[in-house]
Design a protein around this nucleic acid. Structure first.
Lengths: 407, 407
DNA sequence: CCTAATTTGTTAAAGTGCTTGACAAATTAA
DNA sequence: TTAATTTGTCAAGCACTTTAACAAATTAGG
């Protein structure tokens, strides 16, 4: 039992809670769900579900759709989110790229744009660049800002979601305590939510990706930095100060290379995007035979190009990736031992190389984790690819929009 | 928002839920709590609390007690658990020690006994030994098994709480899938709950120890093995298969000493009780000047004696503990970065050395963790000392007893 | 010492929103 | 066509809350 549910139920809220539970169940059930199934899943009676559903239909949030009857008996009426209810935007402000997605309330992507970006240029320039791109994307759909019901934003730093800002971010100079959410909300005139990119990554993969419906999942974002997002029991887990999942500065080798954080042998300094690029340049300097040597000047080599070369069969590139995968595997082992998740989703540009990168991770976990945890965990690449964070932002935004409209 | 509370509220249950929430709030508020405060904390009205409290008093689960009025106005009537409601037992089956506590429903310890123990002797012998000790403890109180309402048991291995057994435990040969809970429940004729010792450790420290009322806490048990228990949002966090918190086999040094699990440089192999004893023997073999050399034969030196010698000022012993603390610090850093807890409670025999062991841990965390997480986390020794696990078992048992009586 | 102010706890009426049980609707099977 | 089956709706009843008024027990102040 160990209840400790210091949680109560004023009757005022019970319809509210049931209504939102029904709404979420409809949202995250692909292909629609009937009233009967809603009742079963929520331990309610059909009679209790009916008026709530009627209410949601009247508000225009959900729609009825016919279904092919599977068994005998009256065929169920399927319920699904009204895609035409409105639009939301999801924005991924990465370290080196800015991605914006516009989707409808059913999370169907309507338009997408990505441009190079430099988060270190600070709030002023970055925000005006983001503003321009958002307007551009909207223009392609003949929409304007007024047609957006909510916007979700992801940034590569530890966020305080309630305050809408980042706190001492290692790779976002100039952004510390800048009121990001409020500035954007004022600029765009609609509700904005701000979250860490890895946190949104888990949310996206949980809602529409590889971790659909899992109870405990971790999302590892391998980019310039390395971060993890944790999802526990239907919620993003943020920890005491919102910095949970900071896997990037886990010590892998006490005598390893110097990290930007001042310590030695951090995961990020050994297997992050920059580290991979550095290793490629070192290989070239050692005159090793690799396609990467053709890139001129060598300073422009990025981790993504190493990944592409590896996919084409370049042995040196493959070796570099395997090594990085192995080191990431050590960190993920710790995560698996501590968190014991159902699934670990690896995302970020490099992860799209697939098994080449994943196999060393799987091997490390199988070798080092407790058997019970190691056999239970599935390790896969992000189903949403580089869109994980954006889709998480969109999930957030749709949450805001739907639950506001449901009152 | 990000509700995703796929949780519903049939009205049948609402009184049930409020009743149990009130009961738990009374349990875990030291010194009693008034109806008004209950109402405030649960967002209910006083009028809703009154009949529930009346009900609990009638059942004999709680009592009213006068309070000195603090401010003007009618003084509140404080409510507390009826200590005379009954008795429970908490049993800590450790690797080398067996501890049994008997307490009343207010978690006040009535009797305690500890004997040397060897979990590797398997279920048959261990259970009959435990049975004997329990009867002994009860005899000192003039009680018998019939007077116990519930019993909580902790074991040093990964448990499946619902099944009441352990799964592939590394240090419990012969116990794999043995129906521990059901065997004991039949033997003793009362409800038994089975949990991992570190999990019960967090629960104990959260309920009555150093982590009282914290939202996120981790308890690190340093004994023969090293394990962590995680407490999140009012609940023990168990993960997908119940093996969350397995910190003992985190890799600290890829080239370190061989661990019983087959890998190299696991935390347990470097900073666990056995590793500390081995280091002490090595120091003696090197003829270093230490009080530990007086122990004959050297094979009998234990980690606890190293800790005692360190407390008396023995420099070699202090050096060994500092080194272990440093290595534990590396692992705790990973935990802090991943979990971002409010507090980390270090327990187990060695931890009682206090700051000598804790300072290197604090230093490592401050140096290596993200500033936001490092400054937020408090690192302390277990307030309940070696009783943490037993008190967790008692907390469990009282939960079972109270919530069953409340229907 | 007495009254006002304040806070706690109780009670009855009203209201919310569930369940129960009966029934209508829409299909397949025979 | 009828029976069986399953889905969805409706009205009555009921559980449990809130609202609002009041009783109780104290302190503060004249």
């Amino acid at each position: 039992m160990l209840s400790t549910y210091i949680r109560s139920l004023p009757t005022q809220n019970v319809k509210y809670i049931n209504k939102h539970a029904i709404l979420d169940l409809i949202r995250f059930k692909p292909g629609g769900i009937s009233r009967v199934e809603l009742a079963q899943r929520l331990s309610l009676t059909r009679a209790a579900v009916t008026p709530i559903v009627t209410d949601l239909i009247k508000t225009g949030l959900i729609l009825e759709s016919r279904s092919q009857s599977a068994s005998s008996g009256r065929p169920p009426i399927l319920l699904e989110i009204n895609a035409r209810g409105g639009f939301v935007a999801g924005i991924d402000m990465g370290a080196t790229h800015l991605t914006i997605l516009v989707a409808n309330f059913a999370a169907q992507v309507q338009a997408e744009k990505e441009i190079p970006f430099d988060i270190t240029k600070g709030p002023d320039e970055c925000i005006s660049q983001t503003d321009r791109l958002l307007r551009e994307v909207l223009a392609t759909l003949n929409l304007d800002l007024k047609s957006l019901s909510a916007i979700g934003v992801g940034v590569p730093g530890p966020t305080v979601a309630e305050a809408g800002m980042v706190l001492s971010p290692p790779i976002m100079p100039g952004w510390d305590r800048f009121p990001i959410r409020d500035t954007l909300a004022k600029l765009w005139g609609c509700p904005v939510s701000l979250n860490n990119d890895a946190e949104l990554g888990v949310l996206g993969e949980w809602a529409y990706g590889a971790g659909r419906g899992e109870e405990n999942l971790a999302y590892i974002k391998v980019g310039t930095g390395i971060g993890a997002g944790l999802f526990i029991d239907g919620q993003i887990y943020r920890g005491a100060t919102g910095s949970a999942g900071e896997i990037g500065h886990m010590t892998i080798d006490e005598n390893g290379p110097l990290c930007t954080c001042g310590n030695r042998g951090c995961l990020e300094a050994m297997a992050g995007g920059k580290a991979i690029a550095v290793k490629a340049r070192e290989a070239i300097a050692q005159n090793r035979r690799t396609q990467l040597a053709e890139i001129r000047p060598p300073e422009t080599i990025t981790a993504l190009e190493v990944a592409k070369a590896a996919a084409r069969g370049d042995l040196v590139a493959q070796e570099i990736l395997t090594e990085a995968g192995n080191q990431l595997g050590i960190a993920i082992t710790s995560l698996v031992n501590l968190f014991n998740p159902n699934i670990v989703v690896v995302g970020g540009g490099i992860a799209q190389t697939g098994d080449l990168f994943l196999e060393p991770i799987r091997k490390a976990v199988l070798k080092r984790s407790l058997p019970a945890a190691a056999y239970a965990v599935r390790i896969t690449t992000a189903l949403l690819g580089k869109r994980s964070t954006c889709m998480g932002a969109i999930t957030q935004a749709i949450s805001t929009a739907l639950h506001k409209n449901a009152e």
